[in-house]
Design a protein around this nucleic acid. Structure first.
Lengths: 260, 260
DNA sequence: ACTCAATGTTCGCAATGCGAACAAATGAGG
DNA sequence: CCTCATTTGTTCGCATTGCGAACATTGAGT
């Protein structure tokens, strides 16, 4: 992700604090494949100088957002305050969680809620009774929107101009041989989602995984969140998803509609 | 939390980037009770000037971490990348989640894992089959360590000097009439936790809530994480917790010990 | 042991971010 | 409805903060 982490300098904009941008880039340099980094590593990943990377890392350490063992830096749990600032401020996850737990308990499958962020979806709440997907899909996890039921359920209800802009810029990368990669076919799938009011994605994100999702329309008429249920493709048919799962999701969506 | 959000200026430290500190303070100004803030609100909460608050908020908006409706700022899901940088980098939640799900499914109760951050515990993974606690205890939520089983299970296994330092500075605030607020009694409770290898907290955090937790010792001999099970106090006795729940938690802890 | 590339650190300096002063908006009181 | 005080938002001269080139240190390879 070198491209994502590079500095987008807003030259001449006196309202822009470049130091904050760099600091946030430094935080985002850490991930599952890079849990511990030297200051040179961070410099390379972010495009800032080693001297600057050093200052930001020492600052994060001094503020207890990171720790240092003499050579490597790693993040600390305090960083979660930043993400939590969003989750607690929207109360979305708190409001949605009981619905997901009821749906999950009633169906015996995993249920999640996500919001759109750029071209990805981000999980904001989750209830799982069985582990059927790849590990690590907790709150904060993100997946490309185009090949997830959650993503399609949200995208299909965006204003036309926003959807067209998305379609222009998105690269429909194949995650399995079944992933839709043709933009015309993708647009048809989104139109069908819009017409029927829910999305089903079968093995386009991951082998053996089938998901159904519905959008949640907020009071202001916008759709920024969706709810899903996921199951093993071989064990639950699409008909069963429509017959058993969809009513539960729609019911939850309808109730949430008046809460958000 | 005005005290928590004030600037701790490290005067003369040329390795410290004060702008990053302020930027992070601005993010943390948002929470459940303050989801939308004006720039004056943020200035008041953080102690920085209105001009500075304005620049940081405009910067966060430009970077898509916040949005602006002409008067109020609010955070966006992109902020979750920051918290996720920690969760994904430690893989703790990913490794722990399957254990919590199995424990939760087998007992029919909610199970969580948390780490210590300052004097609080922060939830890093959770599996709930039934909603028995106050809403909003998702990943990233934090609670005072002293009146939670998870907190006691971690605190009891800290080096003596660190525990004594914690005991010196902590204010044992009562959350219910049953909360231990006497430091001597608290120390006894922690000694008992250390001796028996698990903590039980009964209605000290919240009415009707009883939790049992065990520490997870990592390969390096340190304890930074704990696992729990929670149940309604009237429905599950302490004996049942020790008899049914403790073996499951210990088993999970033992297995995790060789993974972390 | 030596060489050299990679990594970490320092400090002179100028660009960035600061905040006092000003502008605009808001609301209370008459 | 008007006035005025207070609150909130914005600008731009300036000094401090953060920059990065140059230097110091470390470690790998021969």
């Amino acid at each position: 992700m070198p491209n994502e982490l590079t500095i987008d300098q807003s030259s001449g904009d006196r309202d822009f604090v470049a130091s904050l941008e760099k600091g946030l880039l430094v935080i985002e340099a850490f991930d599952a494949s890079r849990p511990r980094l030297t200051l040179s590593d961070v410099a390379k990943l972010t495009g800032i100088t080693r001297a600057a990377a050093r200052r930001y890392l020492l600052t994060l350490t001094k503020l207890n957002y990171a720790e240092f063992d003499g050579r490597y830096f790693s993040l600390t749990p305090r960083i979660l305050r930043l993400g939590y600032a969003y989750l607690s401020s929207t109360s979305l996850s708190a409001q949605v969680q009981p619905f997901l737990e009821r749906i999950s308990e009633e169906t015996g499958e995993s249920s999640s809620a996500a919001v759109l962020d750029g071209d990805d979806i981000v999980y904001i709440a989750r209830s799982a009774t069985r582990r059927i997907m790849s590990i690590g899909l907790g709150v904060g996890s993100r997946l490309p929107a185009h090949c997830t039921a959650l993503g399609r359920a949200i995208l299909a209800f965006q204003p036309e101009d926003e959807f067209q802009a998305y379609l222009q810029r998105v690269r429909l990368e194949a995650r399995t041989p079944k992933t839709i990669t043709d933009k015309s076919a993708f647009q048809h799938a989104l139109e069908a989602t819009c017409a029927q009011g829910y999305a089903i994605v079968n093995e386009e994100l991951e082998y053996g995984l089938c998901s159904i999702a519905v959008p949640v329309m907020q009071k202001n008429g916008k759709v920024t969140i969706a709810l899903n249920l996921s199951a093993q493709a071989g064990r639950v048919s699409a008909e069963e998803m429509e017959g058993r799962f969809l009513p539960l999701l729609k019911s939850a969506s309808e109730t949430l509609r008046y809460m958000l």
